[in-house]
Design a protein around this nucleic acid. Sequence first.
DNA 1: TTTTTAATAGATATACAAGTCTATTGATAA
DNA 2: TTATCAATAGACTTGTATATCTATTAAAAA
Lengths: 150, 150
Amino acid sequence: MHLPQTAEYALRAMACIALKKDGRPVPSKVLARATGIPSHYLSKILRKMVEADLVTSQKGHGGGFRLAKDPSEIKFRSILATVDYKIEPNSCVFGWDECDSDDPCPLHNTWSQLKDSFQWWAENTTLQDVIDDPGKAESLLNPINATKAD
Amino acid sequence: MHLPQTAEYALRAMACIALKKDGRPVPSKVLARATGIPSHYLSKILRKMVEADLVTSQKGHGGGFRLAKDPSEIKFRSILATVDYKIEPNSCVFGWDECDSDDPCPLHNTWSQLKDSFQWWAENTTLQDVIDDPGKAESLLNPINATKAD
DNA sequence: TTTTTAATAGATATACAAGTCTATTGATAA
DNA sequence: TTATCAATAGACTTGTATATCTATTAAAAA
């Protein structure tokens, strides 16, 4: 199971921003170091997040990115959709235009099992879940980087 | 939810071969038409399936491809792995080398939910499931193509 | 005002997946 | 034995995702 690189990056970046405890914005350079995402590439991803109203940005000294709304309102589905990882409920692995339980392709049932669980996950997982179970996140935006950002 | 094109093709092709009722092999051209896969590209995918011992091939007039073993023994995981869509159980969306419940990345738990369900699906779904629930498959290897192949 | 920090914009490059083309080999049927 | 069918092999092209680079704009601090 692996997402396209860009989609994976998007989740990493958003998770990191969500985990920033003080109210201060996270500069993209700090984020790049914490997530291992190439810095310029990350900037482009973040730009999309801004346009999708998932984060806000602030230019200049002390600037950076922060969440645009409550973490519980930012679904993984929205994050993925922003980097064009769309999950069309009616898409068919077989490439059929019309494929549903009335008119199923040979893979319809087997595929639906997976598709449905993905849909559920993307729809019901939010950045709040990341905050509730942050793992070893304390080391992410660590003192070294934090000092430079502060 | 979408697989890489090649992985999707692999599932389509294998499903079609599994659904061939008479014992005769399916020529790749017929398969290409039935699945919408570019014919030469399909050949490459099938070659990999042969090397992975999932299908056998027969050259010449009346030749083609057929399953190398019982459909119940061909897991989706094997099909996907053959076209390099690997599903490493220990892979981490965050890119960490070590990431498990003892030492989790910030996305470990949310991601594991999805990863586990994918793993289960790939491991427990076989071509037998496709045969048991073939959808509107009768139209796939239809008379027009079948005549040419026979 | 000047300097520094940091986002934004867009052109360019690289890598890899996807797709095409031509030729060859092997098997069957006539 | 000849003609035809079909897999195999591999070079080549195309397209797209990923990554890099340079320059510009905006804001804060000194």
